[in-house]
Design a protein around this nucleic acid. Structure first.
Lengths: 158, 158
DNA sequence: AAAAATTGGTCAGTTTAGTTGACTTCTATT
DNA sequence: AATAGAAGTCAACTAAACTGACCAATTTTT
């Protein structure tokens, strides 16, 4: 009896999920090698919200689509480890402005360089044109769906 | 001062994540409408492992990339709710064979029909050719990476 | 200008979904 | 027959989200 190992399906949901997982595994593996061993996948989405001039927790809540308490906990974690600092908000006494520290910026740079490397390699597999087409197709779909279904929150994770 | 709402980035990781999230939100929203209100996203990957003739927990562990105890808990959950049953394994007294019930199959059919509908709509946005190209490009990349980095586990979530 | 409602954020406790460790039963290897 | 390995479960723990209650500052209403 031939051993036919169970293969993953090829519906889009599975493909997106595996592609994302692949990217993230390599990213975080390399970040660990560079000394960023305390960063979890979800943090990446938060960091993007802080570029370039920081953000309030409120903004991050909207971006991530999670509760404000969850965001606050993530910020505690990242502040303890020196990636961000919370400063009083310049114009709103209730709020705080979260900004990147030097270490936070170093992480961003490292992330960008790693992604660039991966995308180049992927371009080698399917060709740069296909990769660019994929990117713009995905952007189109996400934009379309985002406009169509305003009520539902579009969050980076499920 | 113009209100410039924070937009998502367009690196591939973000795009994959948003695309996946979009698919999953619509899928689960519709499943709830059809009465499948107790299914969580991760369950989908498990169900795929049960098509067509069931599987052992061991196989599911390899497919999902999580601990066997976690798989066992998921199976408890799904068995309680009538989606699967655990039968003694026909040839290995230690093992059990997990198979889909009628309700389990009904869920699979519903899922397939919903995905087909979504993919058709997406084909309308970027064109069917682009959608097919995207699918085959993703398959190529995942296959390539999977062969290259054998040690690391390729799991459907992070 | 005072009162009321809203907003940004935190504190505390809970839930969900995974983890590890210890164990039982059955199988495979000597 | 003895022992090592594999499939699966039980129990306890952890990570990361959640909800509810609350405080302080701001904005709106009267």
């Amino acid at each position: 009896m031939p051993k036919t190992p169970r293969r993953h399906q090829d519906d889009l949901a599975t493909l997106f999920s595996l592609a994302f997982s692949t990217l993230n595994q390599e990213l975080h593996q390399r970040l660990v090698e560079l000394g960023f061993d305390d960063i979890r996948p979800m943090h990446g989405f938060l960091f993007q919200g802080l570029i370039p001039d920081g953000a309030t927790a409120k903004t991050l809540v909207e971006l991530l689509g999670i509760s404000k308490q969850a965001v606050s906990q993530m910020l505690d974690y990242l502040e303890e480890r020196g990636y961000v600092i919370r400063r009083p908000h310049p114009s709103d006494g209730r709020g705080k402005l979260v900004v990147l520290t030097e270490r936070g910026w170093a992480l961003i740079k490292a992330k960008e360089s790693i992604y660039m490397n991966i995308e180049n390699r992927w371009g080698g597999i399917i060709g740069p044109n296909h990769l660019n087409t994929m990117r713009s197709d995905l952007k189109q779909i996400i934009q379309f769906v985002g406009e169509e279904d305003l009520p539902q929150k579009l969050r980076p994770v499920w």
